[in-house]
Structures are given as structure tokens and as C-alpha cells.
Amino acid sequence: MVPGRLTDRLGSAEPRHALLAVPIALIVLVTVIDVLAPPDVHLGPFLVAAPAVTASFAGPRTTACVGALAVLAQAVVAVLRTSLVDLNHTFQLITLILMSAFVTSFAARRERHERELTRLRTVATAAQEVVLKPLPRRIGPLRIASAYLAADSEAQIGGDLYAAARTEHGTRFVIGDVRGKGLEAVGDAALLLGAFRGAAHRQADLPSLVAFLEGTVASDLDDPAAPSVGADERGEGFITAVVLDVPDDEPILRLINCGHPPPLLLRQGRVASLDTRHPAPPLGLAAFARAEFAVTAFAFEPGDIALLYTDGVVEARDRDGTFYPLAERAAGMAGQGPGALLTRLRQDLIRHAGGHLGDDAAMVAVERLPGRTEGAGRAGPRTA
């Protein structure tokens, strides 16, 4: 769920120690050539490259040590060629000392920024775990897997969301996408997830639950403490979502689609789109459209997998601008469990997009297992 930490790996101690050989070798090479060069050839100014290169990957202490080593090398060259008080070598030494001090201060500033970035990543990771909790692998008679791919490798969180809640008679799911990006989108996602986790096991039917979620999102848009917007901007904040109810004792699933890409149903190597007859507007806009939340039921038998996803998946493009063919690729990967399916889909999606997604993407795969899980229907509320 969390993207790979390429920067952390590059910033580890082992590769930095290996890179330290570069400036040291440069100092040795310049010193030897300068000593052996004709009297009118001076290579001392090239020594400043050693601390400058070091400052790009090491801290201020290491940079200062390399700078001091470069100054010592310049002094050795001065003694072997003329003397320390020679005017040319004196100016070279002074320049090298000043430049070493400058790049050392630059290294200190860069290291400070790296520490700040590390702290921000730690906070982002903690926020991710609170807002978007990992789904359990098993709930009642269902086996579940989830995946989250951030468009920006440095960003741990975004506006895509999903959650599951255990009820007395089954399991409910929500997957959605907040319009917009940044912290405001994260806040809206947290608002919807909190409302879902708190109400999923209290609302008797699916329309009542979705109506509650709509009221929560709409009331937040109407919050007088929120920044004021013009009338033409009022409808710009919304959340597309699909809310599902999977009962324990019936081989069906019920869903309400609020302007979100329809889930896919994988059954015996075939893929079908779970299109609703009467889709509702996105959450936050239903009040303006006076929409009703109509439930559509689909057969969901043992061995079936329901694949939920956000638009970042199907809108990922390759170099030719072709959208990711999720249904086609999922059909070719049928016959696997939810975890293996999402692992392969995730790898295939990243490969299709050339390693960079244009938008955050989330996927949830839900498989109904054969038989009825012991104790299903009697379990207390549990959310994720």
C-alpha cells in the first residue's frame, strides 16, 4: 500500500561510503599530477571539486574532512614545488579553504532539509495508517486484498479511499475518490471513512447508510467555517463512491454506485461489469439533484471475486496514450486468489504506465469462499 522508498535507499550509509572514494581518488590524482607537472602548470584549483562533490551526498562533517584533506594536499604540493609562502600557492590555499567552508555549509543545509523530509514522511505514513487502515485478509466468509498506489512516489497519502465494516448479517465496503488533491482531499477522505466506520453497522439498509454518508459530505461542504466559494464553485467538491453490502447467508451482493467506476465481477475466467440501472450522483451533489439511492443486486457465488477500483487505475495511460484495459487484464489473471490477483494487476499497471501514474490508484478484491464461515452473522461490528 505504501510506495517504495527509493530516496531512503539512495540515502543509506552503504552507498554513501562507496561514493566517498570518488573525491578521495580525485585529491590523490590531482596531487600526483600537480607535483609531476611542469613549473608553469598548476592543477591546484581542481582540488575544490573534491569537497564540492562530497557535499552532494555526505554530511557537513564528512565534507569538512574532505575539504581539510584537499587543503593538506595543496600544502604538500606547495612545499614540494616551491614553498607555502609562494604567492600563487598562498592564494590557492586561501581559495580552497573558503570554498571548502562554503560547500560544508551547503552540506549542513542539505542534511537539515533531508531530516525535515524524513520527519514529514514519518508523519505521512502515520496519517496513512490512521486514515486508510489496511483491510483484514479475512472477514466472515470473505477473503480480501487491497492495494494503494500513489501517483507521487514522495506522497504517502491522497484522496482515494476504501474501508470495510463487519455487520451482524454481513460485510459492507466502500471505495471512493475525492475530487482534488493534497491535504484537503485527505481531510475529505478521512471524513467519509470516519462516517462509514461509525454508521455501517448501525444503518439497517444500504440506502440509509449512503444517505447518511451523503449528509455527512454535504454538511461539510456547507460548513460556515470552511473557506467561502462562489456559487459556481459550490458543486466542485464531491466524492465518487461505491458502497457494497455482502450478506453472509445469500450468494449475492448489493451495491449503490455514486458516480464511481463500476466494480468488476470475475467468475470462471469471465469478467462482467457491475453496472447499476439507476446510478446516483457523487456524494456531496445528491442534494442538488434530489437523487434516490437505488440498490442493485448481483449474484455473488462462492469462488467469485468482486474487484473494486478507483479511476486512477483505468485512466492510467501508456506512452501511446492508451488507457489501462483493466477488464481485459483481469480476465487473463482469473483463477487466482485476491492477493495474487492484485499483486499481478499492480505490477502490470505500473508497467503499462511506464513506472509513473498520473493519479492515485486503489484496488480492493473480495472473494466469497465456499461454505458459510462458522460464527458468521453472530460476529459483532468490526471495521477497517
Score class of each variant (00 low, 15 high):
V295P: 12
T296F: 04
A297H: 12
A299T: 14
A299W: 00
A299F: 00
F300H: 14
F300E: 13
P302C: 05
P302Q: 05
P302F: 06
G303F: 05
G303D: 15
D304A: 02
D304K: 01
D304I: 01
L307V: 04
L307P: 11
L308S: 12
Y309C: 08
T310G: 07
T310D: 03
T310P: 03
D311F: 10
D311I: 15
D311E: 07
D311N: 06
G312S: 09
V313T: 09
V314W: 12
V314L: 06
V314N: 04
E315Y: 09
A316F: 02
D318E: 11
D320A: 14
G321T: 00
T322F: 06
T322A: 14
F323T: 01
F323E: 10
F323I: 00
F323M: 08
Y324K: 04
P325L: 10
P325C: 09
L326T: 01
L326K: 06
E328V: 13
E328L: 13
A331G: 12
M333S: 05
M333N: 08
A334Q: 10
Q336H: 14
Q336W: 03
Q336V: 08
G339C: 04
G339Q: 14
G339W: 06
G339I: 10
A340C: 01
A340L: 06
T343S: 08
T343A: 09
R346C: 09
R346I: 08
R346V: 11
R346K: 15
Q347N: 07
Q347F: 03
Q347Y: 03
D348G: 00
D348L: 02
D348N: 02
D348Q: 03
L349T: 01
L349P: 01
R351F: 04
H352S: 01
